[in-house]
Simulated scan of single mutants.
Amino acid sequence: MINPNDVTALGHTIELAIAPVFLLVAAGGFLNVLAGRLHRIVDRARSRAQILLEATGHQHESIKEELRAIDRRIGLVNAAIGLVVLAAVLICLVVILMFAAQMSAFVVHDIISILFALAMISIGAGFATFLVETRIASRWIHVSSDLLEHQVMMDEMKD
Rank of each mutant, 00 (worst) to 15 (best):
V7F: 08
T8N: 07
L10W: 07
G11F: 10
E15V: 09
A17P: 07
A17M: 07
I18D: 00
P20S: 03
V21Y: 00
F22G: 03
L24W: 02
V25S: 09
A27D: 10
A27K: 03
A27Q: 13
G29F: 14
G29L: 15
F30V: 13
L31T: 07
N32I: 14
N32M: 13
L34N: 12
A35H: 11
A35G: 14
R37H: 05
H39D: 08
H39G: 10
R40V: 04
V42C: 00
V42H: 04
R44Q: 08
R44N: 05
S47N: 06
S47F: 11
R48K: 12
I51L: 13
I51P: 00
E54W: 00
E54N: 09
A55M: 05
T56E: 14
G57D: 05
G57T: 04
G57Q: 00
Q59M: 12
Q59G: 04
E61P: 04
S62T: 13
S62N: 08
I63H: 04
I63M: 05
K64E: 13
E66Q: 15
L67N: 10
I70G: 01
D71S: 14
D71L: 07
R72E: 14
I74R: 11
I74G: 08
L76D: 08
N78T: 02
N78S: 10
N78G: 11
N78Q: 11
A79G: 03
I81T: 12
I81W: 08
G82F: 12
L83H: 09
V84D: 07
L86D: 08
L86F: 12
A87K: 06
A87Y: 06
A88R: 09
A88W: 06
V89N: 04
I91C: 12
I96L: 14
I96H: 06
S104G: 09
F106D: 01
V107E: 14
V108R: 00
H109L: 10
I111C: 06
I111S: 10
I111R: 01
I112H: 01
I114D: 03
L115T: 03
L115M: 07
A117I: 03
A117R: 04
A119V: 07
M120N: 00
M120W: 03
I121Y: 06
G124Q: 02
A125G: 08
F127T: 07
A128I: 13
T129I: 10
F130W: 13
F130P: 05
L131F: 15
T134H: 02
A137N: 11
S138L: 10
R139N: 11
W140N: 15
W140F: 14
W140C: 09
H142L: 02
S144Y: 09
S145G: 01
S145I: 09
S145V: 12
D146M: 01
L147F: 11
L147N: 05
H150F: 08
H150D: 09
H150K: 12
Q151G: 07
Q151D: 13
D155G: 03
E156C: 02
E156T: 05
M157Q: 13
M157G: 02
K158F: 11
K158W: 07
